[in-house]
Design a protein around this nucleic acid. Structure first.
Lengths: 136, 136
DNA sequence: TATTAACCCTATTGTTTTAATAGGTAAATC
DNA sequence: GATTTACCTATTAAAACAATAGGGTTAATA
């Protein structure tokens, strides 16, 4: 299941992408429009800033805004930062690889084989989908 | 992340598929060969029986065995029984659909849009992969 | 420079899910 | 009828999740 963190993060990004003017939007505004706990959203936006696609400005008139055009923001980055590894098992993860402790041989492991396919298909979706594709 | 339940279940099915003779294999044997807690595996195999692909026999000489050929066992069924819905959000689930409580309009929801794509791609993998494809 | 409104950070808590354990029941075989 | 094996119920320990609380810091504005 998708975590609420990711769900809220995506909704927040979409909300920012929909803004006409690219002025900073306060957290409180996003939280209200998307029905998200403000404090929770705060931490999510902080996390999202690590993607480099999201900028923020402090003080009066401040808030969050997109640095890049939505069409330049791929879901691979967003999903990895919010949800973590795209792979369902660490032994098929590109960015978070770890050997399975209980698995004697990766090549002959059925779980490995299946999850490799699933990862590849998910990756193709995320790579070919940008924030712009998610707008109404 | 894939649950251990699913991981173990897949390993157990693969182990059964690899057997030359199709005689029942006791849980204890599967558990030992695949390094799985026997009690945990018990409940997993019970769950898997609901797919209709797995048979069991009690008493001496009993155990679990595949009813169908591995090539006739698609991953869609196995994954749904073990891991639950293939969709990452209930509003895009085919078999476990539920409306999101916080979402005013599904059609315009960015999460819905993205997760629909992800579901479709995962579904394609699971539909086109049988237990036979996972054998070494 | 004082104020304001926003971002930033740490810690805690309640809930749910997961992974496993324990103990007993039912059925098949010898 | 003793043994073997699957079947069922309940409990628990640990982890992850979703939020809450409270305060601290920063930077515009007046």
């Amino acid at each position: 299941m998708l975590s609420k963190k990711t769900k809220y993060g995506l909704k927040a990004l979409t909300f920012l992408a929909k803004q006409d003017k690219k002025e900073p939007i306060p957290i409180a505004d996003i939280a209200e429009h998307e029905n998200i706990s403000q404090k929770f959203l705060e931490s999510i936006l902080l996390t999202l800033r690590r993607t480099g696609y999201l900028g923020s400005k402090k003080g009066k008139g401040g808030g969050y805004y997109l640095i890049k055009d939505p069409s330049e923001i791929p879901m691979t980055t967003v999903m990895r930062v919010l949800e973590g590894p795209i792979a369902m098992v660490s032994c098929v993860s590109l960015n978070f690889y770890e050997q399975c402790e209980d698995c004697p041989d990766e090549q002959s492991c059925s779980v490995h084989k299946l999850m490799l396919k699933v990862r590849d298909s998910a990756l193709e979706v995320y790579r070919n989908t940008t924030l712009a594709d998610l707008l109404p």
